[in-house]
């Protein structure tokens, strides 16, 4: 199979269906490009070069153009990440309320700093701008769930919980 053919066959029918549903919301397909990447990312964790080419092909965009957007947004992952993404709010309200302590605890417990993935591939820790949860500062978002306010010990307990 040529690289071209391989790339064309990368997306599953389900993914294509979901992407097409999104695309139908817009008069042009490129408007759905980022949404398409998110659909794929939700299933596969991150967007490899080949996946990017596959999505670009499906939505009919020049790959570099789609990658321009993909690399612009901080929540499209163009590098491998862990099974869970821990977004630590690093904006001012959480900082006031001790976000640094949560970050230190994460570094200590998981042995990884901002932007890194644990050796067992379980967690990727990413600093993130204000999560819109300033009344629950300091806040952390693990995958799609918001947690806060958190003490270091509560954070520990969260990391220990049943996540695979």
């Amino acid at each position: 199979m040529s690289r071209d053919e391989k790339i064309r066959s990368m997306l599953t029918e389900e993914e294509k269906g979901m992407i097409d549903e999104e695309l139908s919301h817009y008069p042009t397909t490129r408007a759905g490009g980022i949404e398409a990447l998110k659909i794929v990312q939700r299933r596969r964790g991150w967007i490899s070069d080949d996946l990017l080419l596959a999505v670009a092909h499906h939505v009919g965009m020049a790959p570099a153009e789609l990658d321009r957007s993909a690399t612009f947004y901080n929540l499209i992952f163009r590098r491998p990440i862990g099974r869970h993404v821990v977004l630590v709010c690093d904006s001012v309200s959480c900082w006031l309320m001790g976000a640094d302590r949560l970050r230190d605890r994460l570094r200590h417990r998981l042995g990884v700093g901002a932007g890194e993935t644990t050796a067992d591939g379980r967690f990727t820790v990413l600093p993130n701008v204000c999560l819109g949860a300033c009344d629950r500062a300091p806040a952390v978002m693990i995958d799609e769930t918001l947690h806060g306010p958190l003490t270091e010990d509560e954070l520990d307990r969260l990391l220990d919980s049943q996540m695979p």
């Binding site: 980022i34 998110k38 947004y73 901080n74």
Partner: peptide, 26 residues
């Protein structure tokens, strides 16, 4: 329609937001 973004504060600026919605460079 509900459109979800993929991060970046500048998307809130109204004209950048339009570019973002269209899938153009933000």
């Amino acid at each position: 329609h509900v459109h979800t973004s993929a991060g970046r504060y500048i998307c809130g600026e109204e004209t950048a937001l339009l570019n973002a919605l269209e899938g153009h460079p933000v």
